[in-house]
């Protein structure tokens, strides 16, 4: 049922962006950003529920919460970086989009370092 709302909203947004682009291209770009953000904010509610379920399962499985927290942060950063890069690409700024993605990768690498060290330590412990 929700998908019908989202698809309808997307079609309306696309048509209205085309309509506004004739006279005011800058407002059209802002309109496309706004439409994208509204859809994502709408879906984020459900995403929150899914993530709560995953964290509950992880707690039952006694997985170290640090790993899960880092994993969730990496997912969040990657999505936001892709979101920003896509907005820049819509505006025709491929250079800026590439820089945003590059920054996102660096931030993810920084977050992944502690996990990398933990894995290496556990491997070293295995070696007799």
């Amino acid at each position: 049922m929700e998908i019908i709302q989202v698809v309808g909203f997307g079609v309306i947004a696309a048509v209205s962006v085309l309509f506004v682009r004739q006279s005011r291209p800058d407002i059209a770009h802002l309109l496309s950003i706004g439409a994208g953000v509204v859809i994502v904010v709408y879906v984020l509610g459900y995403l929150g529920m899914i993530i709560d379920v995953i964290t509950d399962l992880a707690l039952e499985a006694e997985i170290n919460t640090v790993f899960l927290r880092t994993l969730l942060r990496v997912i969040g950063v990657s999505y936001l970086a892709e979101f920003g890069a896509q907005i820049c690409r819509d505006a025709g700024e491929n250079g800026i989009a590439a820089k945003v993605e590059f920054a996102g990768k660096i931030i993810i690498l920084i977050m992944a370092v502690p996990i990398l060290l933990a894995v290496l330590e556990s491997i070293i412990n295995f070696i007799p």
Binding site: F9, I12, S16, I27, I39, Y42, G45
Partner: peptide, 17 residues
């Protein structure tokens, strides 16, 4: 859950026109 805010979309289109 929060609802799809179409009114925001139409406000922006209205301002643009």
């Amino acid at each position: 859950m929060n609802v799809l805010r179409v009114d925001l979309l139409f406000q922006i289109v209205g301002i643009g026109i």
